[in-house]
Design a protein around this nucleic acid. Structure first.
Lengths: 199, 199
DNA sequence: GTCTATATTTCGATAGAC
DNA sequence: GTCTATCGAAATATAGAC
């Protein structure tokens, strides 16, 4: 009903939309969302500013679209959070959450970088967009809840947080930290360190 | 010669300047540098926009002043980095660097938050201000150099990075992670975890 | 779908009185 | 040191032709 009535096999559907998102993602990571103008995005794509408005009603929608991409990717990690809520050994569950997270990070480092470097803008825009629906609870929120769960000893919770911090700190900004080392090689070592932390 | 000719004992010297910096710091942390207008800062201080320009020639100077504050604070940590360069046991040196860092973080969490959340803006503005002088090498740069030093086994370097990530990840955004736990209590546990990581 | 205008708003910054 | 008033630039967004 709501799908466009064109042949679904005719592929370049929304191709321009994707190109916009790709360029915006790079610029938002490098300069930040607020510091990036639609003019810049349009110039890189060699189209006019107005062309962008055919694909997105507002600038904020570009950021939201990218944020949603990350959200889909994060669903697997969220599943592991459910395990944590439903009993089971929290340390074990956390370790497999970290594994899932590392895989996600390897495959979508740019989206996570976007999130890390534009949290303020994303928070503000998303909260305005959903108004008060509360709809999907943010993964961060759920992580915070686990780390505040009094049923888990504080010492353990802190180490869970440390392990997560270690993963993010070493694998996300890899280029500026361990330039030249492959991410896979790093991931193995970090995973091992996280395990030691929670042993 | 260049000092103002007023009585140096008459204290509220630059009091307004400090109030501006304090308000700006809070807003830059909450909303980001680019998303914060001088109008907002002026409103919070209940002065006019133009008043701000008596104390700072440009908006960017406010950010630079805050960045310099952080720089002074970071000098102690930088000393520990020297130890790392001049031989000695890198693991031991790293641990005492982390201790110094944790103390700094406890005393100046807001400045570090500012830095973490406005890296892009700071980088761009600072690089424009110093043009090509290269003057003071940024601490991050020095940390990266240590973590790339081939004389230290990769496994050790990764763990050094993990330990730093653990400290930052758990102690910097403390309010959103371990709400309700005192930072001192947390710091003890994180310090211990870092030591285990590098054991 | 993309273009050339243009409207509208807001921002950083300045001039000059007090 | 602070104000009012204003400037010029740049940003988001829209109108309407093609």
């Amino acid at each position: 009903m709501s799908q466009p009535a064109t042949d679904p096999k005719r592929r370049p559907r929304g191709a321009m939309r994707q190109r916009i998102l790709d360029v915006a993602l790079q610029l938002f990571i490098d300069q930040g969302y607020e510091a990036t103008s639609l003019r810049e995005i349009a110039e890189r794509l060699d189209v006019s500013k107005a062309a962008l408005y055919y694909h997105f009603e507002q600038k904020a929608e570009i950021l939201i679209a990218l944020h949603l991409r990350l959200h889909e990717v994060g669903l697997h990690v969220a599943k592991r959070l459910d395990d944590l809520d439903t009993g089971a050994d929290p340390v074990k569950a956390w370790l497999s959450l970290l594994d899932e997270f590392i895989e996600n990070l390897k495959a979508n480092r740019d989206l996570l970088l976007l999130h890390q470097r534009n949290m303020q803008a994303i928070r503000q825009i998303v909260s305005e967009a959903h108004e008060n629906q509360a709809e999907h609870e943010e993964m961060e929120e759920r992580i915070r809840r686990v780390l505040s769960d009094p049923r888990i000893p504080l010492r353990t919770r802190v180490r869970m947080g440390c392990a997560l911090g270690a993963v993010i700190g070493t694998l996300l900004d890899i280029d500026s930290m361990f330039a030249g080392v492959s991410i896979d090689e790093l991931a193995v070592l970090v995973r091992e360190a996280a395990r030691d932390l929670l042993a």
